[in-house]
Design a protein around this nucleic acid. Structure first.
Lengths: 223, 223
DNA sequence: TCATCAATAATCCATTTGGATAGTTTTTTT
DNA sequence: AAAAAAACTATCCAAATGGATTATTGATGA
Protein backbone atom coordinates (compact mmCIF):
# COMPACT_ATOMS: atom_id res chain seq x y z
CA UNK A 1 0.00 0.00 0.00
CA UNK A 2 1.27 3.40 -0.93
CA UNK A 3 0.41 6.08 1.57
CA UNK A 4 -1.16 9.06 -0.17
CA UNK A 5 -1.96 12.59 0.94
CA UNK A 6 -4.39 14.89 -0.82
CA UNK A 7 -4.40 18.65 -0.45
CA UNK A 8 -7.12 20.62 -2.17
CA UNK A 9 -9.38 23.37 -0.95
CA UNK A 10 -12.47 21.94 -2.59
CA UNK A 11 -13.82 19.09 -0.56
CA UNK A 12 -15.50 17.56 -3.56
CA UNK A 13 -12.24 17.30 -5.43
CA UNK A 14 -10.65 15.54 -2.52
CA UNK A 15 -13.45 13.04 -2.31
CA UNK A 16 -13.51 12.31 -6.01
CA UNK A 17 -9.78 11.90 -6.16
CA UNK A 18 -9.65 9.72 -3.08
CA UNK A 19 -12.40 7.57 -4.58
CA UNK A 20 -10.51 7.23 -7.83
CA UNK A 21 -7.47 6.07 -5.97
CA UNK A 22 -9.24 3.78 -3.58
CA UNK A 23 -10.85 1.93 -6.43
CA UNK A 24 -7.79 -0.24 -6.85
CA UNK A 25 -6.47 -1.14 -3.46
CA UNK A 26 -2.88 -0.07 -3.89
CA UNK A 27 -3.38 3.24 -2.22
CA UNK A 28 -3.99 4.20 1.34
CA UNK A 29 -5.32 7.74 1.35
CA UNK A 30 -4.59 8.82 4.85
CA UNK A 31 -4.04 12.53 4.85
CA UNK A 32 -6.53 15.02 3.60
CA UNK A 33 -6.18 18.76 3.98
CA UNK A 34 -7.89 21.85 2.63
CA UNK A 35 -4.84 24.09 2.49
CA UNK A 36 -1.13 24.20 3.06
CA UNK A 37 -1.26 25.15 6.69
CA UNK A 38 -3.61 22.35 7.51
CA UNK A 39 -1.41 19.96 5.58
CA UNK A 40 1.75 20.94 7.45
CA UNK A 41 -0.15 20.77 10.70
CA UNK A 42 -1.33 17.24 10.02
CA UNK A 43 2.11 16.15 8.85
CA UNK A 44 3.54 17.32 12.14
CA UNK A 45 1.10 15.22 14.03
CA UNK A 46 2.01 12.07 12.15
CA UNK A 47 4.85 9.78 13.02
CA UNK A 48 7.54 9.15 10.49
CA UNK A 49 6.10 5.91 9.20
CA UNK A 50 2.57 7.19 9.07
CA UNK A 51 3.30 10.09 6.78
CA UNK A 52 2.14 9.88 3.18
CA UNK A 53 4.80 8.89 0.71
CA UNK A 54 3.21 10.81 -2.12
CA UNK A 55 1.21 14.00 -1.77
CA UNK A 56 -1.12 15.23 -4.48
CA UNK A 57 -1.33 18.96 -4.22
CA UNK A 58 -3.62 21.52 -5.71
CA UNK A 59 -1.97 24.85 -6.42
CA UNK A 60 -4.78 27.31 -5.92
CA UNK A 61 -5.68 27.35 -2.28
CA UNK A 62 -6.48 30.02 0.28
CA UNK A 63 -4.29 30.63 3.33
CA UNK A 64 -1.21 28.85 2.03
CA UNK A 65 -0.96 28.02 -1.64
CA UNK A 66 0.53 24.91 -3.17
CA UNK A 67 3.87 26.37 -4.17
CA UNK A 68 4.76 27.64 -0.73
CA UNK A 69 3.47 24.45 0.80
CA UNK A 70 5.65 22.32 -1.43
CA UNK A 71 8.61 24.54 -0.76
CA UNK A 72 8.35 24.17 2.97
CA UNK A 73 7.09 20.61 2.88
CA UNK A 74 9.87 19.34 0.70
CA UNK A 75 12.44 20.77 3.04
CA UNK A 76 10.75 19.49 6.15
CA UNK A 77 10.07 16.02 4.81
CA UNK A 78 12.54 15.28 2.06
CA UNK A 79 11.30 11.73 1.78
CA UNK A 80 7.86 12.77 0.64
CA UNK A 81 7.17 13.27 -3.06
CA UNK A 82 4.91 16.07 -4.14
CA UNK A 83 2.86 15.82 -7.28
CA UNK A 84 1.05 18.90 -8.47
CA UNK A 85 -2.47 18.23 -9.66
CA UNK A 86 -4.12 21.12 -11.36
CA UNK A 87 -6.78 21.89 -13.90
CA UNK A 88 -4.84 24.20 -16.13
CA UNK A 89 -1.31 24.01 -17.29
CA UNK A 90 -0.15 27.46 -16.39
CA UNK A 91 3.43 28.14 -17.42
CA UNK A 92 4.52 30.20 -14.48
CA UNK A 93 3.18 27.80 -11.95
CA UNK A 94 4.81 24.79 -13.52
CA UNK A 95 8.20 26.33 -13.23
CA UNK A 96 7.70 27.61 -9.73
CA UNK A 97 6.25 24.35 -8.53
CA UNK A 98 9.22 22.46 -9.88
CA UNK A 99 11.62 24.87 -8.28
CA UNK A 100 9.78 24.52 -5.03
CA UNK A 101 10.44 20.81 -5.14
CA UNK A 102 7.49 19.18 -6.88
CA UNK A 103 8.57 15.98 -8.52
CA UNK A 104 5.67 15.68 -10.92
CA UNK A 105 2.98 17.68 -12.57
CA UNK A 106 -0.30 16.17 -13.68
CA UNK A 107 -3.50 17.50 -15.08
CA UNK A 108 -6.59 16.74 -13.05
CA UNK A 109 -8.40 15.73 -16.19
CA UNK A 110 -6.33 12.57 -16.46
CA UNK A 111 -8.41 9.51 -15.78
CA UNK A 112 -8.19 7.68 -12.50
CA UNK A 113 -6.41 4.80 -14.16
CA UNK A 114 -3.72 6.99 -15.63
CA UNK A 115 -3.16 8.77 -12.36
CA UNK A 116 -2.98 5.48 -10.50
CA UNK A 117 -0.63 4.06 -13.09
CA UNK A 118 1.63 7.01 -12.89
CA UNK A 119 1.75 7.13 -9.12
CA UNK A 120 2.68 3.49 -8.92
CA UNK A 121 5.43 4.16 -11.39
CA UNK A 122 6.64 7.09 -9.35
CA UNK A 123 6.69 4.98 -6.25
CA UNK A 124 8.50 2.01 -7.74
CA UNK A 125 10.92 3.66 -10.14
CA UNK A 126 11.23 7.06 -8.64
CA UNK A 127 10.42 8.31 -12.12
CA UNK A 128 8.69 11.63 -12.08
CA UNK A 129 5.17 11.65 -13.43
CA UNK A 130 4.66 14.31 -16.03
CA UNK A 131 1.82 14.69 -18.42
CA UNK A 132 3.20 14.78 -21.96
CA UNK A 133 1.98 18.27 -22.65
CA UNK A 134 3.61 19.46 -19.47
CA UNK A 135 6.87 17.78 -20.38
CA UNK A 136 6.82 19.60 -23.65
CA UNK A 137 6.32 22.91 -21.92
CA UNK A 138 9.26 22.23 -19.70
CA UNK A 139 11.47 21.56 -22.68
CA UNK A 140 10.35 24.77 -24.28
CA UNK A 141 11.09 26.68 -21.16
CA UNK A 142 14.59 25.32 -21.08
CA UNK A 143 15.12 26.04 -24.75
CA UNK A 144 13.73 29.55 -24.54
CA UNK A 145 14.15 30.66 -20.99
CA UNK A 146 11.55 33.27 -20.10
CA UNK A 147 13.12 36.77 -20.18
CA UNK A 148 14.37 37.26 -16.66
CA UNK A 149 11.55 35.73 -14.76
CA UNK A 150 13.38 32.93 -13.07
CA UNK A 151 17.05 32.77 -12.41
CA UNK A 152 17.97 29.18 -13.06
CA UNK A 153 21.39 29.04 -11.52
CA UNK A 154 22.45 30.20 -8.12
CA UNK A 155 20.76 33.55 -8.17
CA UNK A 156 18.90 34.51 -5.05
CA UNK A 157 15.27 33.58 -5.41
CA UNK A 158 12.67 36.17 -4.62
CA UNK A 159 11.58 36.37 -1.04
CA UNK A 160 9.65 33.14 -0.86
CA UNK A 161 9.46 33.18 2.91
CA UNK A 162 9.05 36.91 3.53
CA UNK A 163 12.12 37.24 5.68
CA UNK A 164 13.02 40.77 6.69
CA UNK A 165 16.46 42.14 5.81
CA UNK A 166 17.66 41.70 9.33
CA UNK A 167 16.44 38.17 9.41
CA UNK A 168 18.21 37.32 6.19
CA UNK A 169 21.37 38.83 7.58
CA UNK A 170 21.13 36.68 10.66
CA UNK A 171 20.27 33.62 8.66
CA UNK A 172 23.44 34.13 6.65
CA UNK A 173 25.53 34.20 9.80
CA UNK A 174 23.73 31.15 11.07
CA UNK A 175 24.63 29.37 7.86
CA UNK A 176 28.26 30.12 8.47
CA UNK A 177 28.04 28.16 11.64
CA UNK A 178 28.18 31.08 14.06
CA UNK A 179 26.35 30.80 17.32
CA UNK A 180 24.12 33.41 18.92
CA UNK A 181 26.87 35.06 20.94
CA UNK A 182 29.12 35.44 17.95
CA UNK A 183 26.40 36.87 15.78
CA UNK A 184 25.43 39.25 18.56
CA UNK A 185 29.02 40.44 18.73
CA UNK A 186 29.23 40.97 14.99
CA UNK A 187 26.01 42.96 14.90
CA UNK A 188 26.53 44.73 18.21
CA UNK A 189 23.24 43.59 19.59
CA UNK A 190 22.28 41.32 22.44
CA UNK A 191 22.41 37.56 22.11
CA UNK A 192 18.82 37.53 23.30
CA UNK A 193 17.83 39.60 20.34
CA UNK A 194 19.65 37.31 17.99
CA UNK A 195 17.76 34.45 19.48
CA UNK A 196 14.46 36.26 19.07
CA UNK A 197 15.24 36.83 15.41
CA UNK A 198 16.17 33.21 14.97
CA UNK A 199 12.87 32.09 16.46
CA UNK A 200 11.04 34.46 14.13
CA UNK A 201 12.95 33.02 11.21
CA UNK A 202 11.96 29.52 12.23
CA UNK A 203 8.34 30.60 12.34
CA UNK A 204 8.50 31.92 8.81
CA UNK A 205 10.31 28.84 7.56
CA UNK A 206 7.98 26.57 9.47
CA UNK A 207 10.82 24.76 11.16
CA UNK A 208 12.02 24.40 14.70
CA UNK A 209 15.72 23.80 14.63
CA UNK A 210 18.92 25.18 13.26
CA UNK A 211 19.46 22.09 11.17
CA UNK A 212 16.16 22.39 9.35
CA UNK A 213 16.58 26.09 8.85
CA UNK A 214 20.02 25.68 7.31
CA UNK A 215 18.75 22.92 5.13
CA UNK A 216 16.09 25.18 3.71
CA UNK A 217 18.44 28.10 3.44
CA UNK A 218 20.93 26.07 1.44
CA UNK A 219 18.54 24.13 -0.72
CA UNK A 220 16.22 27.01 -1.49
CA UNK A 221 19.01 29.49 -2.12
CA UNK A 222 18.06 31.95 0.55
CA UNK A 223 21.57 33.32 0.83
CA UNK B 1 2.39 8.36 -42.93
CA UNK B 2 4.93 10.13 -40.81
CA UNK B 3 8.27 10.60 -42.50
CA UNK B 4 11.08 9.42 -40.25
CA UNK B 5 14.85 9.80 -40.33
CA UNK B 6 17.28 7.65 -38.41
CA UNK B 7 20.83 8.65 -37.59
CA UNK B 8 23.06 6.14 -35.86
CA UNK B 9 26.58 5.01 -36.54
CA UNK B 10 25.81 1.34 -35.99
CA UNK B 11 24.11 -0.08 -39.02
CA UNK B 12 22.47 -2.78 -36.99
CA UNK B 13 20.76 -0.28 -34.74
CA UNK B 14 19.38 1.52 -37.73
CA UNK B 15 17.98 -1.65 -39.17
CA UNK B 16 16.40 -2.83 -35.95
CA UNK B 17 14.85 0.52 -35.26
CA UNK B 18 13.56 0.90 -38.80
CA UNK B 19 12.03 -2.55 -38.55
CA UNK B 20 10.36 -1.73 -35.27
CA UNK B 21 8.81 1.32 -36.82
CA UNK B 22 7.81 -0.25 -40.09
CA UNK B 23 5.92 -2.96 -38.29
CA UNK B 24 2.90 -0.73 -37.99
CA UNK B 25 2.51 1.16 -41.20
CA UNK B 26 2.27 4.64 -39.85
CA UNK B 27 5.89 5.41 -40.49
CA UNK B 28 7.82 5.96 -43.62
CA UNK B 29 11.50 5.59 -42.80
CA UNK B 30 13.13 7.42 -45.62
CA UNK B 31 16.38 8.82 -44.39
CA UNK B 32 19.15 6.79 -42.88
CA UNK B 33 22.58 8.11 -42.00
CA UNK B 34 25.64 6.94 -40.08
CA UNK B 35 26.71 10.31 -38.72
CA UNK B 36 25.84 13.96 -38.59
CA UNK B 37 27.65 14.96 -41.73
CA UNK B 38 25.98 12.29 -43.79
CA UNK B 39 22.64 13.28 -42.34
CA UNK B 40 23.02 16.93 -43.25
CA UNK B 41 24.26 15.94 -46.69
CA UNK B 42 21.22 13.80 -47.34
CA UNK B 43 18.88 16.45 -45.99
CA UNK B 44 20.29 18.92 -48.51
CA UNK B 45 19.57 16.56 -51.33
CA UNK B 46 15.94 16.14 -50.37
CA UNK B 47 13.15 18.46 -51.39
CA UNK B 48 11.13 20.18 -48.71
CA UNK B 49 8.24 17.74 -48.73
CA UNK B 50 10.46 14.72 -48.84
CA UNK B 51 12.37 15.54 -45.70
CA UNK B 52 11.68 13.54 -42.57
CA UNK B 53 9.35 15.19 -40.11
CA UNK B 54 10.89 13.44 -37.15
CA UNK B 55 14.53 12.42 -36.84
CA UNK B 56 15.69 9.86 -34.32
CA UNK B 57 19.24 10.64 -33.44
CA UNK B 58 21.93 8.73 -31.66
CA UNK B 59 24.30 10.90 -29.69
CA UNK B 60 27.54 9.01 -29.86
CA UNK B 61 28.76 9.10 -33.39
CA UNK B 62 32.09 9.68 -35.11
CA UNK B 63 32.75 12.66 -37.39
CA UNK B 64 29.83 14.76 -36.16
CA UNK B 65 28.05 13.82 -32.98
CA UNK B 66 24.36 14.07 -32.22
CA UNK B 67 24.43 17.29 -30.26
CA UNK B 68 26.21 19.29 -32.92
CA UNK B 69 24.06 17.74 -35.59
CA UNK B 70 20.88 18.70 -33.82
CA UNK B 71 22.18 22.19 -33.19
CA UNK B 72 22.93 22.84 -36.85
CA UNK B 73 20.04 20.76 -38.16
CA UNK B 74 17.46 22.55 -36.06
CA UNK B 75 18.61 25.91 -37.38
CA UNK B 76 18.71 24.72 -40.98
CA UNK B 77 15.39 22.89 -40.89
CA UNK B 78 13.26 24.29 -38.08
CA UNK B 79 10.27 22.24 -39.09
CA UNK B 80 12.00 18.98 -38.33
CA UNK B 81 11.72 17.52 -34.84
CA UNK B 82 14.69 15.79 -33.33
CA UNK B 83 14.31 13.02 -30.83
CA UNK B 84 17.40 11.77 -29.09
CA UNK B 85 17.60 8.03 -28.81
CA UNK B 86 20.34 6.75 -26.63
CA UNK B 87 21.22 3.79 -24.50
CA UNK B 88 22.28 5.56 -21.39
CA UNK B 89 20.76 8.49 -19.67
CA UNK B 90 23.76 10.67 -19.24
CA UNK B 91 22.99 13.85 -17.37
CA UNK B 92 25.25 16.21 -19.27
CA UNK B 93 24.03 15.07 -22.65
CA UNK B 94 20.38 15.44 -21.79
CA UNK B 95 20.79 19.06 -21.00
CA UNK B 96 22.98 19.81 -23.97
CA UNK B 97 20.75 17.96 -26.37
CA UNK B 98 17.72 19.88 -25.18
CA UNK B 99 19.52 23.15 -25.49
CA UNK B 100 20.66 22.18 -28.97
CA UNK B 101 17.01 21.88 -29.89
CA UNK B 102 16.03 18.26 -29.34
CA UNK B 103 12.36 18.05 -28.62
CA UNK B 104 12.42 14.65 -26.98
CA UNK B 105 14.69 12.22 -25.32
CA UNK B 106 14.03 8.49 -25.31
CA UNK B 107 15.91 5.46 -24.14
CA UNK B 108 16.62 2.89 -26.80
CA UNK B 109 15.49 0.17 -24.47
CA UNK B 110 11.90 1.27 -24.81
CA UNK B 111 9.87 -1.25 -26.75
CA UNK B 112 8.94 -0.64 -30.35
CA UNK B 113 5.35 -0.09 -29.36
CA UNK B 114 6.17 2.58 -26.87
CA UNK B 115 8.44 4.36 -29.28
CA UNK B 116 5.80 4.20 -31.97
CA UNK B 117 3.16 5.41 -29.57
CA UNK B 118 5.21 8.29 -28.47
CA UNK B 119 6.21 9.38 -31.94
CA UNK B 120 2.62 9.40 -33.07
CA UNK B 121 1.80 11.49 -30.10
CA UNK B 122 4.60 13.89 -30.90
CA UNK B 123 3.37 14.20 -34.44
CA UNK B 124 -0.28 14.75 -33.64
CA UNK B 125 -0.15 16.76 -30.44
CA UNK B 126 3.25 18.29 -30.67
CA UNK B 127 3.81 16.90 -27.21
CA UNK B 128 7.41 16.14 -26.54
CA UNK B 129 8.25 12.53 -25.95
CA UNK B 130 10.22 12.03 -22.80
CA UNK B 131 10.89 8.79 -21.02
CA UNK B 132 9.72 9.08 -17.44
CA UNK B 133 13.15 8.58 -16.01
CA UNK B 134 14.50 11.28 -18.27
CA UNK B 135 11.73 13.63 -17.28
CA UNK B 136 12.66 13.06 -13.70
CA UNK B 137 16.28 13.91 -14.37
CA UNK B 138 15.27 17.11 -16.05
CA UNK B 139 13.24 18.10 -13.05
CA UNK B 140 16.16 17.40 -10.80
CA UNK B 141 18.43 19.49 -12.96
CA UNK B 142 16.06 22.40 -12.72
CA UNK B 143 15.68 21.94 -8.99
CA UNK B 144 19.40 21.58 -8.34
CA UNK B 145 21.25 23.31 -11.11
CA UNK B 146 24.62 21.62 -11.42
CA UNK B 147 26.77 23.44 -8.89
CA UNK B 148 29.24 25.35 -11.00
CA UNK B 149 31.79 22.71 -11.63
CA UNK B 150 35.02 24.06 -10.25
CA UNK B 151 38.33 22.31 -9.82
CA UNK B 152 37.35 21.23 -6.35
CA UNK B 153 34.18 19.51 -7.49
CA UNK B 154 36.04 17.24 -9.89
CA UNK B 155 38.77 16.49 -7.44
CA UNK B 156 37.84 13.79 -5.04
CA UNK B 157 36.00 15.82 -2.44
CA UNK B 158 35.30 12.27 -1.36
CA UNK B 159 38.09 11.56 1.04
CA UNK B 160 39.10 15.09 1.79
CA UNK B 161 38.06 14.57 5.37
CA UNK B 162 38.37 10.80 5.56
CA UNK B 163 34.81 10.30 6.68
CA UNK B 164 33.69 6.70 6.91
CA UNK B 165 30.60 5.59 5.03
CA UNK B 166 28.57 5.60 8.18
CA UNK B 167 29.75 9.07 9.04
CA UNK B 168 28.83 10.40 5.62
CA UNK B 169 25.44 8.81 5.99
CA UNK B 170 24.90 10.52 9.28
CA UNK B 171 26.20 13.81 7.98
CA UNK B 172 23.64 13.67 5.22
CA UNK B 173 20.84 13.23 7.72
CA UNK B 174 22.27 16.02 9.81
CA UNK B 175 22.17 18.25 6.76
CA UNK B 176 18.50 17.53 6.35
CA UNK B 177 17.95 19.02 9.75
CA UNK B 178 17.22 15.82 11.62
CA UNK B 179 18.18 15.60 15.24
CA UNK B 180 19.96 12.73 16.95
CA UNK B 181 16.81 10.91 17.97
CA UNK B 182 15.37 11.01 14.49
CA UNK B 183 18.55 9.81 12.89
CA UNK B 184 18.78 7.06 15.47
CA UNK B 185 15.27 5.98 14.56
CA UNK B 186 16.03 5.96 10.85
CA UNK B 187 19.15 3.88 11.30
CA UNK B 188 17.81 1.74 14.10
CA UNK B 189 20.67 2.56 16.40
CA UNK B 190 20.88 4.41 19.67
CA UNK B 191 20.86 8.17 19.85
CA UNK B 192 24.03 7.91 21.86
CA UNK B 193 25.71 6.24 18.96
CA UNK B 194 24.54 8.90 16.60
CA UNK B 195 25.99 11.46 18.90
CA UNK B 196 29.27 9.62 19.04
CA UNK B 197 29.42 9.56 15.26
CA UNK B 198 28.62 13.24 15.12
CA UNK B 199 31.42 14.03 17.51
CA UNK B 200 33.79 11.95 15.40
CA UNK B 201 32.65 13.83 12.31
CA UNK B 202 33.32 17.14 14.03
CA UNK B 203 36.81 15.94 14.86
CA UNK B 204 37.51 15.12 11.28
CA UNK B 205 36.07 18.36 9.99
CA UNK B 206 37.83 20.31 12.72
CA UNK B 207 34.67 21.98 13.90
CA UNK B 208 32.66 21.91 17.06
CA UNK B 209 29.08 22.64 16.20
CA UNK B 210 26.33 21.54 13.90
CA UNK B 211 26.26 24.91 12.21
CA UNK B 212 29.91 24.77 11.25
CA UNK B 213 29.67 21.20 10.13
CA UNK B 214 26.72 21.89 7.87
CA UNK B 215 28.47 24.90 6.46
CA UNK B 216 31.42 22.78 5.46
CA UNK B 217 29.24 19.98 4.22
CA UNK B 218 27.30 22.29 1.97
CA UNK B 219 30.12 24.45 0.72
CA UNK B 220 32.63 21.65 0.18
CA UNK B 221 30.04 19.43 -1.37
CA UNK B 222 30.38 16.50 0.95
CA UNK B 223 26.92 15.22 0.18
C1' DT C 1 -2.77 60.86 15.31
C1' DC C 2 -3.27 56.21 16.11
C1' DA C 3 -2.12 51.68 14.82
C1' DT C 4 1.09 48.52 13.26
C1' DC C 5 5.37 46.44 12.75
C1' DA C 6 10.41 45.54 12.95
C1' DA C 7 14.07 45.56 15.96
C1' DT C 8 15.60 45.56 20.40
C1' DA C 9 16.01 43.19 25.14
C1' DA C 10 15.15 40.18 29.02
C1' DT C 11 13.60 36.05 31.88
C1' DC C 12 12.11 31.30 32.87
C1' DC C 13 12.26 26.66 31.65
C1' DA C 14 12.76 22.37 29.00
C1' DT C 15 15.30 20.11 25.48
C1' DT C 16 19.23 19.38 22.55
C1' DT C 17 23.90 19.38 21.86
C1' DG C 18 29.00 18.98 22.66
C1' DG C 19 32.82 16.93 25.26
C1' DA C 20 35.05 13.46 27.86
C1' DT C 21 35.41 8.91 29.00
C1' DA C 22 34.74 3.91 29.04
C1' DG C 23 33.21 0.21 27.46
C1' DT C 24 31.32 -3.95 23.93
C1' DT C 25 30.51 -5.93 19.37
C1' DT C 26 31.40 -6.37 14.30
C1' DT C 27 34.14 -6.07 10.39
C1' DT C 28 38.35 -5.80 8.04
C1' DT C 29 43.09 -6.46 7.51
C1' DT C 30 47.29 -8.61 8.28
C1' DA D 1 43.88 -16.39 14.40
C1' DA D 2 45.38 -12.00 16.10
C1' DA D 3 45.35 -7.12 15.60
C1' DA D 4 43.24 -2.97 14.14
C1' DA D 5 39.54 -0.21 12.76
C1' DA D 6 34.63 0.92 12.64
C1' DA D 7 30.48 0.78 14.74
C1' DC D 8 27.89 0.56 18.61
C1' DT D 9 26.15 1.82 23.65
C1' DA D 10 26.27 4.36 27.78
C1' DT D 11 26.64 8.08 31.49
C1' DC D 12 27.89 12.61 33.49
C1' DC D 13 28.07 17.38 32.98
C1' DA D 14 28.12 21.94 30.97
C1' DA D 15 26.77 24.86 27.32
C1' DA D 16 23.77 26.11 23.58
C1' DT D 17 19.36 26.17 21.73
C1' DG D 18 14.16 26.55 21.36
C1' DG D 19 9.71 28.28 23.14
C1' DA D 20 6.73 31.37 25.56
C1' DT D 21 6.04 35.72 27.30
C1' DT D 22 6.52 40.61 28.21
C1' DA D 23 8.08 45.17 27.15
C1' DT D 24 10.39 49.44 24.97
C1' DT D 25 11.72 52.03 20.96
C1' DG D 26 11.57 53.99 16.39
C1' DA D 27 9.78 54.00 11.74
C1' DT D 28 5.88 53.55 8.42
C1' DG D 29 1.40 54.11 6.97
C1' DA D 30 -3.62 54.83 7.05
Amino acid sequence: MIRIGIVDDKKNNRIILADKLRRNNLFDVRLDAANGEQFLQKMMELKFDERPEIVLMDLEMPIMDGIVTIATGSSLYPGVRYVVLTTFDDDDRIFNAIKAGACGYLLKEESGEIIADILVNLWTNGAGPISPSIAYKILQMIQNPPPVKLPLAGKKSENLFQLSEREKEILRFLCQGLEYKEIALKLSISANTVKKHVINIYDKLHVNSKGHALHIAYTKNLL
